[in-house]
Amino acid sequence: MIPASFEYRRAGSVEDALGWLAEDPDSTKLLAGGHSLLPLMKLRLATPGVLVDVGRVPGLSYVRDAGDHVAIGALTRHRDLEISEVARASVPLLAHVAGQVGDPQVRHRGTIGGSLAHGDPASDLPAAVLALDATMVADGPRGRREIAASDFFRGFLETALEPDEMLTEIRVRKAPSGWAFQKFNRRAQDWAIVGVAAVLDGEPRVALVNMGSTTVRARGTEEALAAGAEAADAAARAAEGLEPPSDLHASAEYRRHLATVLVRRALVEAAAARG
């Protein structure tokens, strides 16, 4: 499978990328690690006229302790996030989830910014950043703006990023303990049939993978936890108000049930880790 023809430009800076994006935002795509976009291009589901390779833009691959939060450069590869000492100490959920994406080869190339900007509801990282109350930092022709994770994921492969904007940094709150990630799939390296990212430090946050057209919070569970419910009772409300997809891996009904099981496990594990 070979992508349709495109014009390739290699950006040396964010300004390069934004300038080229502004020329024709609707037919220009940014390429970081390429592990979401290139498969779509090979299937001709994406046929950008111009591909702007931001993979070599310097200064956008980092994991920094920024005091009250951890700042992650959008071009940070999954493998680098997985082994980052800062991430492991301050946001171990994120380091763990980065190590669950795809397989080692994918993690050597794929980037957190690319994965989040792609906005696939079956991806693990969107749920992790949603559970961590992340703030997305986007640069564009109208300057820089911050977007809360809860406003960022809009729908299937759709985010709050405008076509002429670029995601440059992700800021997540520190959550050194009281977290868990649960994922169920049938084969190694598969997308999660359902996944759960839970953070109990501070206000409880529970986010779900593959339980809707985008990553979603388990609001019923969060409400129950805030009201002091036990894990099992809170988990029973995991699929409340959600419309998970049916596909060859699982029916919507199966997913609703699986969500309650995985959320219960995640809550028990997170509570035990909190001590």
Partner: peptide, 24 residues
């Protein structure tokens, strides 16, 4: 990007060469 038959090392790390452009 599933089977790994096309795995090569790029700058010392394993990658799936069916999911990289030569220009990358």
């Amino acid at each position: 990007t599933s089977c790994g038959a096309c795995t090569v090392l790029l700058d010392g790390e394993s990658v799936k060469s069916c999911t990289l452009l030569a220009v990358q």
